[in-house]
Amino acid sequence: MALKIYIGNKVYSSWSLRGWLAVRQSGLPFEEEVVPLYDAAWEKRRMAPEFAASNGKVPVLWDGGNPVWESLAIIDHLADKVGRDRYWPADEAARALARSMASEMHAGYVALRSQHGMNLRPVYPPEPLTPEVAADVARITSLWDQAKRRFGQGGDYLFGRFGAVDIMFAPVITRFRTYSIPLPALAADYCAAMWAHPFMVEWGEGAAREDWVIPMFERATD
């Protein structure tokens, strides 16, 4: 039975982007269903059986009758099906760093995520960052630099080939563009490579076809 993933609006849903990229990376056939978030029917819709396991959150991947939610769980589930080398570096030292970075991304950078929500439509002019956001950006770009210099020389991505860590950081890359956050040269080059990846292009094209606007995720402009 083919996989099916329920995702939120492609313009706004950072967690959905990760889950969708993970399924796309698997190479397995899948069906996707976009569920509009925070509209008038959302509270009722999120109580439907397909969201029961995740407590009303997206993304949710259904593999036959088995639900899987949370980005890292989806990656691990798919890696079990198609082989971990599709997601994680083969080298043990590289894999240890990659897993640590993915886990830190999953749980960290609260200031960046809360103050600069994902929104693929606008590109805002640069504004001064709060100290907390600046610290998150510095930490992220420092980790990128470490991974790229130690293990990423063989390709455009953090560990050479596109994989789980790139998937986990994909929404951050969108935030850096949306809010015109200045980056060191290596980080800027990596972001450009990510934007050019066919899966990111495909997601962006889907987002461009959406017409939903969620006011809480929009920033007032003069």
Rank of each mutant, 00 (worst) to 15 (best):
M1T: 15
A2W: 12
G8P: 00
G8Y: 05
G8A: 00
K10H: 14
Y12D: 01
W15K: 01
W15A: 11
S16P: 10
L21R: 04
R24Q: 15
Q25N: 15
P29C: 01
E32G: 10
E32T: 13
V34K: 14
V34G: 06
V35K: 05
L37H: 01
L37I: 04
A40I: 05
R45Y: 04
R46A: 02
R46W: 05
M47A: 14
P49F: 05
A53E: 10
G56S: 04
G56L: 02
V58P: 01
P59S: 09
G65P: 15
W69G: 08
L72G: 11
L72I: 13
L72Q: 14
L72T: 14
A73D: 09
D76F: 08
H77W: 06
L78V: 09
D80Q: 15
G83L: 02
R86H: 11
R86S: 09
Y87F: 15
W88D: 06
D91H: 13
E92N: 12
A93S: 11
R95L: 09
A96S: 15
A102I: 05
M105R: 10
H106F: 10
V110T: 13
L112I: 00
R113K: 14
Q115H: 06
H116K: 08
G117L: 13
M118W: 07
N119V: 09
L120P: 08
V123R: 15
Y124P: 03
P128L: 02
P128N: 00
L129P: 01
L129A: 03
E132R: 03
E132W: 05
V133A: 00
A134Y: 07
A135K: 13
A135I: 06
A135C: 07
D136R: 02
D136N: 11
V137C: 04
V137H: 05
A138L: 12
R139K: 13
R139V: 07
W144E: 00
D145C: 12
Q146H: 15
A147T: 08
A147F: 14
K148D: 11
G155H: 02
G155R: 01
G155T: 05
D156V: 11
D156K: 15
L158V: 01
F159V: 05
G160H: 00
G160D: 00
M168A: 08
M168F: 09
F169N: 08
A170K: 05
A170I: 04
A170F: 11
P171K: 06
V172P: 06
R175S: 03
F176N: 00
F176T: 01
R177S: 11
S180K: 06
P184R: 00
A185M: 07
A185Q: 11
A187Y: 01
A188S: 12
A188C: 06
A188D: 12
D189W: 08
C191W: 02
C191L: 06
A193C: 06
W195Y: 15
H197I: 03
V201F: 09
A208V: 04
R209W: 07
E210Q: 11
V213M: 10
P215C: 07
P215D: 06
E218I: 02
R219G: 04
R219V: 13
